[in-house]
């Protein structure tokens, strides 16, 4: 599986494994720009394709707005779901820079979190969107 190659062969352990059945979203990565669960993708399917993981989200020593806003809004606790949520919500904001709250909630429905109760995550994503739009 792609998740195993990322974690065990490439030592990119920021992509988490919570279920290995595509239910929890902790292993969310982008494959040629499309949001996928790395535990459902065969590693060979990723051959010659672009894979974006959490390790590449902060660039040049600066956090991405979604990472910053998750910190500011206390949108994480244990943090095991956080990399998946960062990847998924960044993908949303790139596709839809001004999502409604319902759109954010639907988009992140595949990313389970057991600590925060989601609300602060949703607010952080909305706020990150506003920051990225320059508001």
């Amino acid at each position: 599986m792609l998740s195993e190659v990322l974690r065990n062969n490439l030592n990119l352990t920021g992509t988490k494994e919570g279920c290995n059945t595509g239910d929890c979203g902790a292993c969310s990565v982008l494959l040629d720009g499309a949001l996928v669960c790395a535990c459902l993708v065969l590693a060979v399917e990723a051959q010659d394709r672009s894979i974006e993981t959490i390790e590449g989200v902060a660039k040049d020593g600066k956090l991405h707005p979604i990472q910053q806003k998750l910190l500011e809004h206390a949108g994480l606790q244990c943090g095991i779901c956080t990399p998946g949520i960062v990847i998924a919500s960044r993908a949303l904001l790139e596709k839809n820079p001004d999502p409604t709250e319902s759109e954010v909630r639907y988009w992140l429905a595949g990313n389970l979190c057991r600590c925060t109760g989601y609300d602060k995550i949703i607010r952080a994503v909305m706020d990150a969107g506003a920051t990225m739009r320059g508001e």
Binding site: R7, N8, N11, L12, T13, G14, T15, K16, E17, T53, I54, E55, V57, A58, L63, Q67, L70, L71, E72, A74, L76, G79, I80, T82, P83, V86
Partner: peptide, 23 residues
């Protein structure tokens, strides 16, 4: 008060090491 949690940075960047992350 509400400081940014000290463990937060490693968690949002994927650097935080969990049980299965040590090789």
């Amino acid at each position: 008060t509400r400081p940014i949690r000290p463990d937060g940075l490693d968690k949002v960047t994927g650097r935080a090491m969990y049980g299965a992350d040590l090789n």
